[in-house]
């Protein structure tokens, strides 16, 4: 079993008190408890405070462009499906800049895990509204308040029949770790939206604000009822449910591609002699 220490990475450059620290720690613990070694993990991220996370732990890392981690991760998984592929993104990154990729990655259903650090604000660019900011949120660039309806990522995912849809809270790291383990072990695309306070820029959705509202979905909750799950995702305000909202085992993208059933693509050796006969096709 790997040790927690083996996952020790660089020193984080996050604000003291940032929810990201609990998310990082929960992820490391989840991987240790699942007995996954760092060299068996590919961490793909985009740009934002969340996307620095891979540097602060251990694993193969592709820290790419803002919003574009999902296509990188999907293709890496197709090339080598033996890797555990985990995407670390933020609300601006994944629900804004990369929104189209989220929709189509859910449709494709590769067996990858998406962790979205959702603090309802832009941190890296210093305080603008994000796709999940409440309507009316004031910022330097939203002088009349945020005019748009916030995006509901869980409802969106369920509408697309995403196979694993969950929400956690950085202030409940033990439960978050369990949700991460469930997401990583789920066969197919999993979305785990993680509520997280931004101690510097979000003065409304603070740690206390979340703590007073967040509760766990009841134990008898039915994970497989898509319509009821959709209804529960609409619950937001005085009470905010956490936990797994919906599960559905669909065939993964990798399972649907016949040529990689025996061997991952990366291990399939190229031989020019095998493809040479193709030249004859043109005669």
């Amino acid at each position: 079993m790997p040790s927690f220490e083996i996952y020790e990475g660089q020193e984080p450059a996050w604000c003291p008190g940032c929810g990201n620290f609990q998310i990082l720690s929960s992820l490391k613990k989840a991987l240790v408890e699942l007995e996954i070694e760092p060299w068996e993990v590919l961490l793909a991220s985009g740009i934002g405070q969340s996307s620095k996370l891979p540097h602060y732990m251990k694993g193969h890392t592709f820290n790419g462009l803002h919003g574009r981690a999902l296509p990188v991760a999907t293709a890496a998984k197709l090339a080598n499906h033996k890797l555990h592929v985990i995407v670390i993104a933020g609300d601006g990154d994944c629900y804004g800049e990369g929104g189209n990729h989220l929709i189509h990655t859910i449709r494709r259903n590769p067996n990858i895990t998406l962790l979205v650090h959702n603090n309802q604000i832009y941190g890296l660019t210093k305080g603008q509204a994000s796709p999940t900011s409440a309507q009316g949120t004031h910022s330097k660039v939203q002088p009349f308040g945020n005019l748009s309806e916030p995006l509901n990522p869980l409802a969106l995912a369920i509408s697309l029949n995403c196979g694993f849809v969950a929400r956690g809270f950085s202030g409940d790291p033990e439960f978050l770790k369990e949700l991460m383990k469930a997401a990583i072990t789920h066969k197919g695309f999993s979305l785990l939206d993680i509520l997280q306070p931004c101690v510097t820029f979000n003065k409304v959705n603070t740690f206390g604000w979340y703590r007073d509202r967040v509760y766990r979905l009841e134990e008898e909750y039915n994970l497989n009822d898509r319509v009821k799950a959709f209804a529960r995702t609409l619950e937001w305000g005085e009470k905010i449910p956490n936990g797994i909202f919906f599960k559905n085992r669909r065939k993964t993208l990798e399972e649907l591609i016949p040529i990689i059933q025996e061997k991952p693509l990366v291990r399939q050796e190229f031989s020019i002699n095998k493809v040479k006969p193709e030249l004859k096709v043109f005669y």
Partner: peptide, 17 residues
């Protein structure tokens, strides 16, 4: 956007893309 990022993901993972 996805097309080129996918090619990069596959290439990073070790196949010609």
């Amino acid at each position: 956007l996805a097309a080129i990022n996918m090619a990069l993901g596959a290439s990073f993972a070790g196949v010609r893309a």
